[in-house]
Amino acid sequence: MSRLPPLLLLCLLPFASAAAEADKPSRADLQRVLERHGRSVVHVKGPRNAGPGVFVGSAGQVLTSVTPVGASFTGLNAATVEHDGKTLPARVVMASQDLQVAVLAAPDGAYPAAPVKVLRDGDSLDGRWLVGVLPAKKGQPARPVPARARAAQPPFYDVPLALPAGSPVFDAEGRLVAVVVKKHRRGCRVLPLSAVKVELASVDMP
């Protein structure tokens, strides 16, 4: 196999770097994610724990980590969802220990669901820019931060962002593409919505 001359390689490197940066979410993209995050994210409290979740259906379906609830609570009103200053009862529609996610159903109503993007068969998040919203801290508001996803043990991906389990992860267009299932020392592990869709295929949604 022929090799490119070192000088030519040096000339190509800036172009490769520029192409990668061209795909990086813009300031406007980050602002759009922040606005959608603020509208659609809720606080979930279950019998085991509590954490963030996100509306994925306008009828009140909430996607979160399995941490607040477990498989034994499926079908029960075993959680609450805090949204818009109200605490709402929520039924556990699905809780998967293997995928580490749960889907809850708030009471019938109209909710600000995040727009979603489900990967097609054969698509991957590996190498793609994603956006997570880092939680607010003392003196600092919540802020959107871009990072590249890397393939982990299928169907999971790793993202170098310090996000708590249950947090939504968006693409550059502000569409929900994955949910955080756990934190680790290099960031967090996320599950794409396509895997959640497969799991829900045999479950009756409210």
Rank of each mutant, 00 (worst) to 15 (best):
V190L: 14
P141Y: 09
E173S: 13
R91K: 13
Q100A: 15
V145W: 09
A147E: 10
L161W: 05
L88G: 06
R175P: 00
D123C: 02
G132K: 08
V180W: 02
V33Q: 10
A136K: 11
V103R: 05
G38V: 00
A142M: 12
A59H: 09
R36A: 06
P47L: 15
P68Q: 07
L8W: 00
A78M: 08
V42G: 02
A22P: 03
D108F: 11
L88K: 00
L30M: 10
P168D: 11
L88Q: 07
R185F: 04
S2Y: 07
L119H: 04
P135C: 00
S40Y: 01
R185W: 02
E173Y: 05
T87Q: 09
P155S: 13
V33I: 07
A79F: 08
E82L: 07
P68Y: 05
C11P: 03
N49T: 15
K182Y: 12
V118H: 01
A50Y: 08
A147I: 03
V42I: 08
V41Q: 01
V116P: 03
P146C: 01
L30E: 03
A149H: 04
L12W: 06
V69R: 06
L63F: 02
L4C: 03
A142Y: 05
A78W: 05
K138H: 13
G109N: 10
A106W: 00
Q61P: 10
D98E: 14
D171C: 01
A114W: 00
G75M: 10
V196C: 14
A28I: 02
S72K: 12
V198N: 15
G85I: 01
L191M: 14
E35W: 03
A18Y: 08
S202V: 12
G166I: 07
P14K: 12
D171Y: 06
L191Q: 12
G166K: 05
A78C: 07
A18R: 14
L12E: 12
L99F: 11
V56S: 11
E35H: 02
G132T: 03
G75A: 06
T64S: 10
D23Q: 12
V41G: 04
A162I: 04
E199A: 15
